[in-house]
Structure formats: structure tokens, C-alpha cells
Design a protein around this nucleic acid. Structure first.
Lengths: 338, 338
DNA sequence: CTGAAAGCGCTAACAA
DNA sequence: TTGTTAGCGCTTTCAG
């Protein structure tokens, strides 16, 4: 038989389709005579029966899938996060469903729509902005959501983030210990909470250390990307204000700083110390290896998936967010001030 | 209305559900009075109607999705390929559906099964091995497939690959020009066609250049991965046979060679020239920047998607495979023999 | 414990 | 050009 249906199983087992359905579903198997159930299961196996999830979804309005919305899969931080999500979901009945928005809001709306049409049980977003009408709307419609890396302002959505502030504080401390006092900050977009939080933490950390926060050497990038980082670095270097170290909003931005530095014939760390954020894959192999803040990316994924499963299993539980610890990883891109 | 159905649209537009269906589907709209069609469409919009793809799939046994089976998303070559697939599919009605096998055959079977249950219209595989029972079986069942990067022996499946042999020949030429004669080869798994083809090409290229092919400095890695590369490099370096350059099966393996070299206090390119394959993202930022063969990864993706669309649109067309050109990119990891 | 019957939302014959 | 009817494969009342 090409593709045996439940009906096929039922008839060859000599029972009604409904009984076969009950026998095959572990949750309803108790309603069925143990012998019959065993027989049905055996028949199903011998026929190579595979339940049609589409028919099931149509009936139950569920899908056993979790949508994962990612801004850009080519950003190396996402594969480890995805891996974490997959692994944590592995033991459950759910499968992740990845979509790529390309940082395009319209595309995000379309993709989320189609995901919802496919009856996903929940959505994990890595695309959150501090103001995010789509997420606000979904929240109102009681769509199950978990955010990773970034929060939305003023809406209670469970979020898994790294301790951005602690990371920045550790970085400032490290640079200060090396004797740097003129520390530039080249942050990510302030439209994202991680960009915002890291910048606020920077200012606070500087003042806590008794270092001057000079707005002339603090700027933001348009995007969490290498080219945006290079543009920002150029702006900083073209300015009149001197600095001996720069904290980049993330590793990709730091990469852009490397590029710009090289283009100008400057050297890191001799001319400028550089620090990144995330410790993305292979960033330790750079020339020079990048000093950065390690974010437990895989764990961000596992925690997000776990939070989603909790949301599904225990709807009543209050909304909680998880904050994961980070760790400064000192490598070759930072050196004592000369 | 929470989630209006086709029936809702039909009744408020004063027509039968079937008519509404015809009016809403561009392919059948011609069968409907232009005025009625317009009215139905307007009603659908005002109600915020979104067709339920699950119901549609159940009826049509189609899904408007293409499955993409990837061995390991954390390998940086796949995101660009995915991006290519997405972009090329973008203009069509199809959406890609990514799954990660983790290089696990059992997992691959399960995932492919579920993809097929979801009525995907075709499958793009990046996981092919030269002997691949699953793919052979799918081929027999006339499942639409396109392979990327790797072929299966003896089965006619459309495949998009880079010109592996040409790449290896260019590398050997480059190293020979630099004066290297003792060239080691640290290939990928021979169970994959790319591993096999690159190795065969190496042997041929060496003899074509009049260089000695010494099996003592030719070995294979267990996997296309950094740690496997380090293990292989150790094997080579522990051997008695001398060599001044090594060709790695891909960039990840080359990364492993870097690691092992560093662990032994050796330097690249002073002590050993290293060449990779693929030109994966950020590999140009290494210390030293890796000389490698650029594979047009994005184009691999677009071509694969295009091939899939052709398979769907023109079932009669003979099976064709596409071979994409590669280009040697010389960077700092190769130097004249000293 | 099991069967009958209905229906999830949509599309495709077939009829009118 | 439109409506009627049936059914994709499954689950879930409701009877029995």
C-alpha cells in the first residue's frame, strides 16, 4: 500500500477508525482494550502507517511545531542558538520551524502570518525591537511567545537574554586595569534592547570607575553588522577626540573596526584596543584574536525552548524571564595603554 | 470575527464557498464573473481573511514548501547557501523549510519522513553521501530532489556542485609555482563525493605537474570539521615524511591544521603553507588569512532552488546537473618554499 | 470498551 | 458563470 491511512489500519485490524485512532494515540490508549490496542499497533507497524500530520492539524488546530523567527541566519551567533533550541525541543513532541526575516519588517509580518496559519504552537523571536508593534499585537492575541537576546519595552513577554550590563561592566573594568581612560563606545542600534542596555551600562560603568564619559567618542551603528561597524569606526577615527580603546556593540561590529583600522594602516592592539561582544564562532581565530564577552549562545537556545515548553505545559504560570551569565574572554586585541 | 473562514467570506459576499474559492485563487479566477470576483476579494480583505494552508494541503496533497536538509547549520557555509535558496524561491510561491540532521542518519530519516508527511513539494539535500540508501529509496519513489555540494554514486539526481577538481588543480598549480614539491593532502571524508573528487583531482594534478604523489603525506579526515582537521594534521606531522605545504579538504579542516600547528609552536606560512576550500565567511580574517578556493555558495543556493522549481514546473525535462566555477583566492597562509 | 457520525476548511468534479 | 456534493485523513463527541 502506497501510503496507508488510518482507515486502512482500522479495517485490516478489524476495528473502526475511531478505535484505531484511540489505540494509536498514547494519551487515549487507556480507553481501549489492551489486546485490541496491541493488535492495532502491530497492524499499523506492519503496514508502515504514518499518521498524516496535516489532517491531524486540521482537526485539532495544533501542529506540534514551534516557529523560530531570526533576523539573519548569516549572523554566526544564530546557528548555535538554533542548535540549542533544536536540542532542547528534541525530547519533546515539538519541532522547530526556522524563518529568516532579513531584518525586513514587512517580510517578518508575512512570515509570522504564514507560521500562524500553519498553526504553530508558539513563536520564538530573535528579532525583537524595543518598539515592536507586531509583537505587541501578537501579545494581545495571546500568541505564545519567547524572545531571545532582545526585549520589547513595556510588554510582558518571557525573554532569554545574556547579562549585557554585567558584560559591559567587565569590559570597562578590564580596559581600565590596562590603563585606558579614553574609551570609545561603538554600540549597536538603540532600537534594540541589547543596544540600549549595553550603552546605558557603558555610561554607568565609566562613571563608576571615575572615568570620563565623553559623548564625542560614543556613537551607534545602524546595524549589528560588519559594514556598519566599519562606518562607525571611521566616524570615530575621523573625530577630533582621542581614544585608545573601543568597545564594540558586538563581534560583527568589532570586525568592522578591524577592517577600518587596517584600511588606515593602524594596528590593533598597538594603536587601539578593541573589545567585542558575544564570542561568536571562530572569532578567537582572528588576527589578533578578539577580546570579547562570551554569551552562552547554545544555552540561550535551550532556555528559550524550555521556556516555550513551560508556556505550553503550564499556561497558568506567571511570566518569567531568564538572564544568563556572561564571561569576559581576554585575547590579543586588548593591551596596556602605551 | 476571530479567524474568518472561506465560508464566512462566501456568505457575507452572498455567494457559495466554491465560488469564493474560485474568486480568491488567481488560477481559477477566470471562471468567475469579474464583478463577483471583485466583490469576493473585497469582502475577503475587509474581513481579514487568510486561507488556511493546512486545509488546502489536506485537499490538494500539496504544501507550497520545499524541504532543505542540512547536515549541520553551524557550518558557516550553509547560511549563505540557505540565503541563496530563500532568495531564489522568494519570487515563487514556495517557501523553504530547513531541517538539521546533525550528520545523524537516523535523524535524517525521521526528519525527511516528517517533511514528506507535510507534503513538501521537493527536497534539497546538502547531506548526500556517495552511498546513500535513503536518497536511492526516495529516487525510486519519484520524490523530487536536488542535491547541493555532493553527489550520490550511480543515481541520476540533479545536483549543484562547485568545480572541485578545477579548484584543486588551481591550488596545486599555485603551490608548485611557489616552489613547493612536497605537498600534503588532508582531505574530507571519502564517503562524500566532494571528498572523493578533491582527492582524485589532487593525485591527478600532482602527476600532471610532475610532482610526486606520496601516500605517506595523504590522509583523510573523519568529518568536515575543525577538530577532525586537527587530528588529521597531527597524524601528518607525526609521520616521518616531510612536507612544506598542505591542502585541506575544506576551510574547517584548514582551521584544524592552524590549531595543531599553533599547539606545536609552528608557524604558518613560515613553517607550512596551508590552503583551504570554500572561502567560508570570515575565513579571510584569520591569522594568517587563509588561501582558499572560493566556492560561490550563494549561487549554489540559487541554482539549487531554480533547479527545484524547474523540476516542479517542467517534469518532462531531462535531469541536468550544474557545475559552478571556482576561483583560487591567494592570501597570507601560503608563501614560497624556504 | 467500541462504533456511528460529524466536521476541521478547503477544492474539484459534476450539474445546472 | 455558479451552486451542489463529496471528501482529503484525522479526532471527538455521543450513543450504545
Amino acid at each position: 500500500m502506497a501510503n496507508p491511512t488510518l482507515r486502512d489500519v482500522a479495517t485490516t485490524a478489524g476495528v473502526h477508525a475511531a478505535t484505531a485512532s484511540r489505540a494509536l494515540n498514547p494519551k487515549t490508549r487507556g480507553l481501549v482494550n489492551a489486546e485490541t490496542a496491541k493488535r492495532v499497533i502491530r497492524v499499523a507497524e506492519s503496514l508502515g502507517y504514518r499518521p498524516n500530520p496535516i489532517a491531524r492539524s486540521l482537526k485539532t488546530a495544533k501542529s506540534a511545531t514551534i516557529g523560530v523567527v531570526i533576523p539573519d541566519l548569516t549572523n554566526p551567533i544564530f546557528p548555535p542558538i538554533m542548535r540549542g533550541i533544536e536540542d532542547a525541543l528534541g525530547s519533546s513532541d515539538y519541532n522547530p520551524w526556522i524563518v529568516n526575516t532579513d531584518n525586513d519588517f514587512a517580510r517578518e509580518e508575512i512570515l509570522v502570518d504564514s507560521l500562524r496559519n500553519l498553526q504553530v504552537e508558539g513563536l520564538i523571536f530573535a528579532t525583537a525591537r524595543r518598539q515592536h508593534p507586531l509583537l505587541a499585537r501578537l501579545r494581545e492575541n495571546d500568541v505564545r511567545m519567547v524572545l531571545v537576546n532582545r526585549k520589547v519595552d513595556g510588554i510582558g513577554i518571557p525573554t532569554v537574554t545574556a547579562d549585557d550590563a554585567a558584560g559591559v561592566i567587565a569590559v570597562v573594568h578590564h580596559l581600565a586595569e590596562l590603563g585606558h581612560t579614553r574609551i570609545a563606545f561603538l554600540g549597536g542600534p538603540l532600537s534594540t534592547s541589547s543596544g540600549y542596555v549595553r550603552k546605558v551600562a557603558f555610561r554607568q560603568a565609566m562613571s563608576d570607575r571615575g572615568l570620563e564619559y565623553d559623548p564625542a567618542i560614543v556613537t551607534d551603528c545602524e546595524a549589528w553588522a560588519e559594514d556598519a561597524g566599519a562606518v562607525g569606526a571611521a566616524r570615530l577615527l575621523d573625530g577630533a577626540a582621542p581614544f585608545t580603546a573601543v568597545i564594540a556593540g558586538n563581534d560583527l561590529i568589532a570586525l568592522g573596526v578591524y577592517d577600518e583600522l587596517r584600511a588606515r594602516g593602524l594596528r590593533c592592539p598597538e594603536d587601539l584596543s578593541i573589545v567585542g561582544f558575544n564570542d561568536m564562532p571562530y572569532i578567537d581565530k582572528l588576527d589578533p584574536p578578539l577580546t570579547t564577552v562570551r554569551v552562552p549562545l547554545y544555552e540561550v537556545g535551550t532556555e528559550a525552548a524550555r521556556a516555550m515548553l513551560e508556556l505550553i505545559d503550564e499556561p497558568g504560570r506567571p511570566i518569567r524571564s531568564v538572564l544568563l551569565p556572561v564571561k569576559l574572554v581576554v585575547r590579543g586585541s586588548t593591551a596596556p595603554r602605551r
